[in-house]
């Protein structure tokens, strides 16, 4: 049996952390356009994480980032 507290704790642990490495980002817009929950926005020529709470960890941004700039971790 998993207590509700434990379940909540597990969920806390799984909360994704989205990062954009500005040194690698070339500003292609792919993460901004294809994120289903609008986590990213463009700031100048670089993508930035605008709305981290919205991330559902679908991983599409990391998979599609051509520049190894976007990472999604726990």
């Amino acid at each position: 049996m998993i207590s509700s507290f434990e379940r909540h704790g597990a969920m806390e642990k799984k909360k994704p952390v989205v990062l954009v490495n500005e040194r690698y980002c070339k500003g292609c817009h792919i993460c901004v356009e294809f994120c289903p929950t609008s986590v990213f926005e463009m700031r100048g020529f670089t993508a930035v994480v605008k709305n981290p709470e919205a991330c559902i960890a679908c991983m599409q941004c990391e998979l599609r980032c051509p520049d190894f700039a976007v990472t999604v971790s726990q």
């Binding site: 040194r23 690698y24 070339k26 292609c28 998979l63 980032c65 051509p66 520049d67 190894f68």
Partner: peptide, 17 residues
Amino acid sequence: KLPHIWCPGCGHGIVMK
């Protein structure tokens, strides 16, 4: 070795991953 030489939006980086 990163960032690589490929242009913004070039898919080669996606394929390399």
